[in-house]
């Protein structure tokens, strides 16, 4: 595995690039106070709407806040949103799908119809409705993203479990008297998890975009939180001042692309069917 990873770094430049971008963003988000010299929240109306300069690398917004600081701090929210959503949705979806696939029969039928019901809504609209009804703050936005995201994991997991549970080692385990729970946890899930992991890594970029979209529409965390999607929408009224929307937009772009590159690389590594000869 480790050797494969090494080879992956060497042969897959996009993966390497993705890792560099994401590590850089994570470092920036963690060390934000060290990198930036302005507070991302405190207003300074004497310097509002200034173009990028040596003092303010990315310029300032309509409250005179330093956009560079806000972009760096904003990484925290986007990273958090991407990771938390994928982990939660992945865990929920995995167990849900595994149970449905393993138990089968009528329960499977009911469980899967329910997840399809959620899938049948347009994702963005469903997330907006949840957010609008519950009130928009960071927690509710993440909640909405998880609600929208988990069914696809459940479907994937179920389909894999259906084939895994026919394997001889599962039958052997049952014959040895293992409990249902043990079979599920020790045999089925560990042998089906790969495809979910692949899906999760490619999904991080999507979730970051989705989170930014909701914030752009005013359904994310409350201002003055330096959140990228919200910063892009701040600049909409200032068409000829590109830096207000431009830099946070660029940040969303690099983060999403970086996460996707990593996802693609990991798929190459983990999916035996797609793995190239290194």
């Amino acid at each position: 595995m480790l050797r494969a990873a090494k080879k992956l770094f060497k042969s897959n430049y996009l993966f390497t690039l993705g890792v560099i971008i994401c590590v850089a963003w994570i470092l920036a988000a963690v060390c934000a106070p060290l990198i930036t010299q302005y507070d991302p929240i405190i207003q300074d109306l004497a310097h509002r709407l200034e173009a990028p300069s040596a003092a303010h690398w990315f310029g300032t917004d309509d409250f005179g806040r330093d956009i560079f600081s806000r972009v760096i701090y904003g990484g925290r929210y986007s990273l958090l949103a991407g990771l938390v959503t994928v982990v939660l949705a992945g865990v929920i979806g995995t167990f849900y799908g595994a149970i449905a696939g393993y138990v089968g029969g009528r329960i499977d039928n009911i469980m899967m119809r329910f997840s399809e019901m959620i899938l049948s809504f347009p994702t963005l609209v469903l997330a907006m409705i949840i957010n609008a009804v519950m009130g928009s703050n960071l927690f509710n936005t993440l909640f909405a993203l998880v609600i929208v995201a988990w069914p696809k994991y459940a479907r994937l997991m179920r389909s894999v479990v259906l084939s895994v549970k026919e394997n001889d080692y599962v039958t052997a385990s049952i014959a040895l008297g293992a409990s249902q729970m043990r079979v599920l946890m020790k045999e089925i899930i560990p042998n089906s998890i790969n495809s979910v992991l692949i899906m999760a890594t490619t999904d991080i970029g999507n979730q970051i975009l989705m989170f930014s979209t909701l914030s752009f529409l005013g359904l994310g965390s409350a201002p003055p939180t330096p959140e990228w999607g919200m910063m892009v929408s701040d600049g909409v009224n200032y068409f000829n001042r590109f830096w207000i929307s431009g830099f946070p937009g660029l940040a969303i772009f690099t983060m999403a692309v970086g996460a996707n590159f990593i996802g693609d690389g990991l798929r190459d590594l983990l999916d035996p069917k797609l793995r190239k000869e290194f």
Partner: peptide, 16 residues
């Protein structure tokens, strides 16, 4: 921002 100057800590809650 203004209320912070006299120690009133405001949390903005958005509601459509």
């Amino acid at each position: 921002d203004d209320l912070a100057k006299i120690g009133i800590n405001v949390t903005i809650v958005q509601q459509p």
